[in-house]
């Protein structure tokens, strides 16, 4: 996966996913990201996924759609998905679309990591 657009690591059974790109807008990119995260979900018995947006400046509704699909797949396997480090301008997009009600959103990855334990 030399052309991966993600940085994926594991800490205490939680898979941390970080984006390499600052803009998550391109349909082809979103598709590739979605497939890579789906592979992580499918390889886990009970997926525990933490997605950090620390590098992200822009995302599109297609990226939101991919996140929803990832959330649905995680729930199908009784797993957990938490989001963290979302820029205030992007968080506003979650609020406008009411997706802040659908996702577990935390200010920091540490806070999100603790939420898995509780």
């Amino acid at each position: 996966m030399s052309d991966s657009r993600l940085k994926i690591s594991n800490t205490d059974g939680v898979t941390l996913v970080e984006f390499i790109d600052r803009n998550i807008l391109d349909e082809a990119n979103i598709q590739a990201i979605s497939e890579e995260i789906t592979a992580v979900i499918e390889s886990a018995d009970i997926p525990k996924l933490l997605i950090s947006f620390s590098n992200v400046d822009h995302l599109s509704s297609a990226a939101l759609g991919a996140l929803i699909t990832i959330n649905n797949k995680t729930r199908e396997k009784s797993g957990q998905l938490h989001l963290a480090n979302i820029d205030p301008q992007i968080y506003e997009v979650f609020v406008i679309t009411r997706l802040n009600k659908l996702f577990n959103i935390h200010e920091t990855t540490d806070e999100a990591q603790n939420a898995f334990a509780s």
Binding site: S60, S61, A62, L64, G65, A66, I68, T69, N71, N72, V93, I96, T97, R98, L99, K101, L102
Partner: peptide, 21 residues
Amino acid sequence: DPTLQENLSKPSGRGVMLMKA
């Protein structure tokens, strides 16, 4: 309306509402 509870888990249909917002 993508913000209705029954549509929140649907992955598409938010582009036009974001433009309007």
